[in-house]
Nucleic acid binder design. Structure first.
Lengths: 276, 276
DNA sequence: ATAAAGCTTATAGCAACAATAAGGTCAAGT
DNA sequence: ACTTGACCTTATTGTTGCTATAAGCTTTAT
């Protein structure tokens, strides 16, 4: 029982034979004997100690090649610093995962919001809570041009976000604004492009949009934004409301919404109003 | 500006050219045009939308081939279930990382304990807190045999642990016991082999070792356990102490401690005593 | 005309194995 | 002695999402 075949060794240690062959190949655990004629590997039961150590260090997150170095040098200083470093990097990983989880939740709720949105053309009066945005000043007024310019400006926003370390995951919920001074004259001049964010973003990077009552219209095509926005303004006059702030065009994207390779968009156009 | 080269496309989207070529190759984002003669790829700026979606889904943890399916089918049911599943798996990952962090901390403290242990042969009187162990009844008394049998029993313990879902990471701090009834007669018959665990292990799997005052001796070689244990028993008589419970042989492993390919062991032999 | 920048394909590498194929060896039973 | 089935061997490919390199062609600017 002192000479174990690879199959026996694999069974008593709960590793696959492939793994043992792999360990042999990379030199991290070589059998005590290899039959010259048959090539059969034979292990000693004492080698389980080394395998234990490999598995132990592996379970602590060490890579095989680092384990090899470790088992060669027995440099305990090295391993301790590795462990401490690893402990820190795990904290970072946990943080990252929490962010990802957050992003997933936002994606799901965004999706549900899309699903439960009223049909194209619906006008609603809604109270909307305070929102946070990360905003980028536009260099060109895309209303004067087409979707290409809009895409270009989006690129710039995205790049800007990346520079400031903001996650891609916010990019599914964008919007743009036309300031109060312009919208009251039906002058469509977009001042900035933004993404809606949450409280995980550093305060100095974000600004807010005040809570309030908004008259909204839902719109499912890019080209129809302006006609729909005009309907919204007409409705405001008809109802004798007054405009109370900037016009907002919010994009609510269905997750994989691409039609003919283009961005498929669903908009919620919003104007804050005062009801007298 | 409607036809972008791969370099331009890569710059405005902050991805490498290689990545774009790779996406082309796997069919997830194909350029609108490829020059038949030069093979140059040309993209439309509208394709940024698709790239955004790829990056967005990727950032949510989706794999490229799943993204491809998604972008082909637009099956929103599928994506929602994916997101929910993913959200759960992230919880599991976070849990696993927390365990790993815990294991690292234990590894570090175990290492420090090893480093600060007194030299071989030292006898100490120590108060030791309550401890938790996961124990495995031995089928053979390894004291009658050698290290091979000990290794075999260790394999069984390990397998048993694995069956019960216990982490490898506890395996660096093992021990065995000789019951009170035997040790008072200097009968070395080991009843069980165990690993020291912490409070993260389900209660039904573990047992405890009572807190108490122990006379201990430190020992650095496997073959010397019994002579050293006898010295400990002699010392107990000399000091007029009485034995108050089971004899414990605890293994304190230095992390990468393997000498000549064998397990290098450092023992702390312990007998609980009553001082009259 | 020439150089620099930009593009192409093709190949290898990463990490830690798992899966497969095609074939040789061992132990037990008849 | 022979067969069967379990067990072993090497070699190759695949996994994931790219990055890096080499060798060579194209475009753009001077």
């Amino acid at each position: 029982m002192d000479r174990l075949t690879i199959g026996q060794m694999s069974k008593i240690n709960n590793v696959s034979e492939q793994t043992l062959r792999y360990y042999d190949k990379i030199g991290i655990l070589k059998p005590i004997e290899i039959d010259k004629f048959t090539g059969y590997r034979y292990y000693s039961i004492k080698q389980c100690a080394r395998l234990d150590m490999i598995q132990y260090l592996k379970s602590l997150g060490m890579q095989l090649k680092d384990i090899e170095v470790q088992l060669k040098t027995y440099d305990t200083k090295l391993i301790k610093s590795f462990l401490e470093e690893k402990s820190r990097s795990i904290d970072a990983e946990i943080e990252a995962l929490k962010h990802q989880k957050n992003a997933l939740q936002r994606a799901i709720s965004n999706y549900e919001r899309y699903e439960s949105s009223p049909p194209d053309g619906t006008i609603t009066l809604e109270y909307i809570e305070k929102r946070w945005i990360y905003s980028y000043k536009m260099s060109t007024n895309f209303y004067d041009f087409g979707i290409e310019i809009y895409e270009e400006e989006l690129r710039k926003l995205k790049e800007d976000m990346e520079r400031n370390g903001l996650r891609q995951t916010y990019f599914c919920n964008t919007g743009n604004r036309v300031p109060y001074e312009q919208i009251i004259n039906r002058d469509f001049i977009s001042s900035d492009l933004f993404v809606f964010v949450d409280e995980n973003v550093p305060e100095n990077l974000i600004s807010t949009i005040k809570a309030g009552t908004y008259l909204c219209i839902y719109c499912s095509r890019f080209e129809q934004e302006i006609p729909y926005a005009n309907r919204l303004l007409d409705e405001i006059s008809d109802r004798n409301y007054t405009i109370a702030g900037d016009y907002i065009c919010e994009v609510i994207t269905d997750l994989p919404d691409l039609m003919n390779g283009e961005r498929g968009m669903f908009f919620k156009l919003q104007i804050p109003v005062r009801i007298t």
